[in-house]
């Protein structure tokens, strides 16, 4: 059980969550609360359930059992409004087969927002990619680190209420790692974004997190 003692209002509350893949339980959380504007670290071995928990928090998959409350309301994957407040950066992000600018601005486009090119330039700058060099580049002209930063920019442009990061710096060079760490924290600074970060980088998590949760075999063991 992981209760939140923060003074900020509760953003997430998970109750009796069980997730199963092919009949096998991969995640079991009795109770978890996450406060607004907090930074939560998530650690655990590969296959411990970190990505599953993040996908449930992102409302991309529904748990087999249990309830997820967001801002006090029981929410599910079919509710578009809640998915527009939360965004997940996976470990190996997918870029659409179009230009960098179109990738970054996609989330704004589906929301019908204006001034997308300027906003795309702002967030590219935030992740350390020179807008003039990158906006017109195609998705296949990027290195792994650049693609990861473009994917993060596509999330940051949304000014999300919650940013979920699934091992965002795995297999990246030092420069890309530094830029991603800085840009993620900037979201918290500028827009009070709640961050949930799954990572094996304990030193980083300990330096930024309000709380670190450990998953072992799909169960929260330490908070």
């Amino acid at each position: 059980m992981a209760q939140d003692t923060s003074k900020e209002p509760l953003l997430y509350r998970l109750e009796d969550i069980i997730q199963k893949y092919g009949g096998r339980a991969v995640l079991g959380i009795d109770s978890l609360a996450i406060a607004s504007k907090s930074i939560i670290g998530l650690v655990g071995h590969n296959g411990s359930g970190k990505s599953t928990l993040l996908r449930i928090l992102a409302f991309l998959e529904a748990p087999a059992q249990g309830k997820v409350f967001f801002q006090g309301k029981a929410c599910c994957t079919r509710q578009d409004w809640v998915r527009r407040k939360v965004t997940l950066l996976p470990q190996e992000p997918y870029l659409l087969k179009r230009s960098v600018e179109a990738n970054v601005a996609y989330g704004l486009r589906v929301r019908g927002e204006d001034n997308r090119p300027d906003k795309a330039r702002e967030v590219l700058d935030m992740v350390g990619l020179c807008p003039e060099d990158f906006v017109r580049r195609s998705w296949h002209e990027l290195s792994g680190g650049e693609a990861q930063r473009v994917a993060l920019a596509a999330r940051l442009i949304l000014k999300p209420q919650v940013l979920l990061l699934d091992e965002p710096t795995t297999s990246l060079d030092a420069e890309s790692t530094r830029r991603i760490k800085e840009a993620s924290l900037a979201a918290r600074t500028h827009w009070d974004t709640t961050l949930v970060v799954a990572s094996h980088d304990m030193a980083w998590l300990e330096s930024i997190c309000d709380k670190i949760l450990t998953l072992e075999g799909g169960r929260l063991t330490i908070s």
Partner: peptide, 21 residues
């Protein structure tokens, strides 16, 4: 790519936009 659908949903696309994209 299997990641396409979750990427679109995570960026806020509604079902009609998921279809078109």
């Amino acid at each position: 790519d299997m990641r396409l659908k979750s990427t679109l949903l995570s960026l806020g696309a509604v079902p009609r936009q998921v279809l078109l994209t």
